[in-house]
Amino acid sequence: MRTVCYLAHCLLNANAKVDEGARCQGVHSPVLALLRDHGCTIRQMPCPELAFGGTRRFWAVREQYDTPAYRAHCRRLAEPVAAQMRADLAAGARVIVIGIDGSPSMGVELTAASDEWGGRPDKPRDEDYPVTLGAGLFTEALLDLLSGVVLGVRVVGIGQDLFDYDEAAELAKLDAMLGGAAGDAG
């Protein structure tokens, strides 16, 4: 069975990360190599924050992005992605979404949320960035659009936006999913 992986944009292009958030120059080679090893087809999802906030944006939380305009932006970007996923599923492929845990937009199991976070960005993100349980806004929009087929889609988050990011552990998690382990969206 063909496996189609839909990657968060920044996994192939760290230049899309928030200011001070790029862990590699461009392509995240370990993830690419893992996907190649498993013979996956690769699709790159749009970065919702890049087109909305540009390249100089700081490390915001969900509440700062959670506006009708940003939700509409996410939905507009997610619609063709969801249509592509539906086509892949209809063709018999296995579909895996690879998001970014800790991201307010692309988080899967972990996002960033706070009622207080905001204002002048005078704190480094690593210091007390409020990572919380939950998905990001784009992930929510995408999964909502996949209603009816969402159980056929697996989702996993790579914790690149977490202070305690453990690359070996994150790659092992992805490797396990690519090998057929659990992780269905529903």
């Binding site: 292009n13 120059q25 392509v27 690419l32 190599a33 690769i42």
Partner: peptide, 13 residues
């Protein structure tokens, strides 16, 4: 992509 990764480029696919 692996080649451009070696050169440090990010990719818009």
């Amino acid at each position: 992509p692996s080649d451009v990764a070696l050169c440090g480029w990010g990719v818009v696919a």
